[in-house]
Design a protein around this nucleic acid. Structure first.
Lengths: 201, 201
DNA sequence: ATTTACCCTTAATCTAAGTTAAGGTTCTTT
DNA sequence: AAAGAACCTTAACTTAGATTAAGGGTAAAT
């Protein structure tokens, strides 16, 4: 661990995360520490609700969150799960400062670090490393999202489920099947059928 | 127009594009000019094929391109159309230098400006403005892609078509319905039915 | 000028996934 | 410890959209 021990322990995972992209020196770290706020989140607690402007980029230190949309008929559609060392936000709402169509909700109790828009803009303007880091972070998110779109277009529900198991083996243990079904774009009943058919080869 | 007239006219749209994000001075422009290569593209010509590593970020000066994936059964699925002043690339393949799963093909004859990976990395390392610009470009692309995913999850084919007409009125004139159907994730036959039903209220 | 290739539509049949309903099970909260 | 949620499964029925097939239209290449 290359991080000086003057860093509050609860910020360490975030500093390590940025370090994975571009080495952070003491000055960089000093710049980000006061701008992130720690927050504990209970199970089922929202960090974003439809109609609200998304005010934060939230870095997940622990816990598991779902980002989802509710359709006209009240059905929930998970677009992304966010766990340790990943970011939860509605980028569109955050940057355009427009009401979000999405919910971000804790599936498990957790622990996050949040930065507000003006503070993130401050980092962008005063330290180009943050432009770089977030460029790369968003490039990776873009690729993930594009693969998800390709899957949903090109393969059937059974193959989407198998890909999910392969890609996120830990999540498949951690989440109830109702949430996985919503992520795959199918009903829990149909997922149940797929699982049964898979077991009997 | 704030661009000095020493700029080759064929690069001007690109400089203007960057200017929309962050003002480019003479030095910035001098840095990018030698790194972009102009290329004419015929109808049906590929700028990326499945199995090849995506070597370029391609800025479209004129023309219309489709980015699509071919499924196991040979079906084509358009994931994005790219027209004037937009970028065509497979970000995942480009950055990981891995074979692409996608095709990028000209629907119309066109005219593009291409930059290779080492040249783009040079810009990133030597001028933080490019990290910023591409961060914002990719943020916008991410939002576009996320909206597409939400649409495909939450609404039926008729509403997806209406949204497409609203969002890209010019494209709906410019493209054959077969291409639009592929973008919407339906067959041309079903799009034809939707159009008929819409006309008869 | 005409063939070729692509494009649009209609309609009948087919299928993957949704819906509803019901019973049993396992977490969570009191 | 009990009650209440939430979760998982099975099964019968329904539906959105796919598939197939066929006819006619239009642009473009020889």
């Amino acid at each position: 661990m290359t991080i000086p021990n003057l860093i509050p322990s609860n910020i360490a995972p975030l500093v390590e995360h940025f370090n994975d992209y571009l080495p952070m020196d003491a000055e960089d770290i000093a710049m980000l520490i006061p701008r992130f706020v720690e927050r504990k989140v209970k199970r089922r607690q929202f960090i974003l609700q439809e109609g609200d402007v998304c005010q934060h980029y939230s870095f997940v230190v622990s816990g598991c969150f779902k980002i989802y949309k509710v359709d006209e008929k009240g059905g929930e559609h998970n677009i992304q799960f966010v766990t340790e060392n990943d970011w939860a936000t509605d980028i569109g709402s955050f940057h355009a400062e427009k009401p979000s169509e999405l919910y971000i909700e804790a599936i498990e109790p957790g622990h996050i670090l949040q930065i507000k828009r003006p503070d993130l803009l401050f980092l962008y303007v005063n330290n180009p490393k943050f432009d770089r880091n977030f460029r790369v972070i968003i490039e990776n998110k873009f690729v993930e999202l594009q693969n998800r779109l390709l899957q949903s277009f090109c393969v059937n529900a059974t193959e989407r489920y198998l890909t999910f198991l392969e890609q996120y083996p830990a999540l498949s243990q951690r989440l109830p099947n109702t949430q996985i079904a919503s992520y795959l774009g199918i009903t829990p009943e149909f997922l149940s059928k797929i699982r049964k058919d898979l077991v009997s080869k």
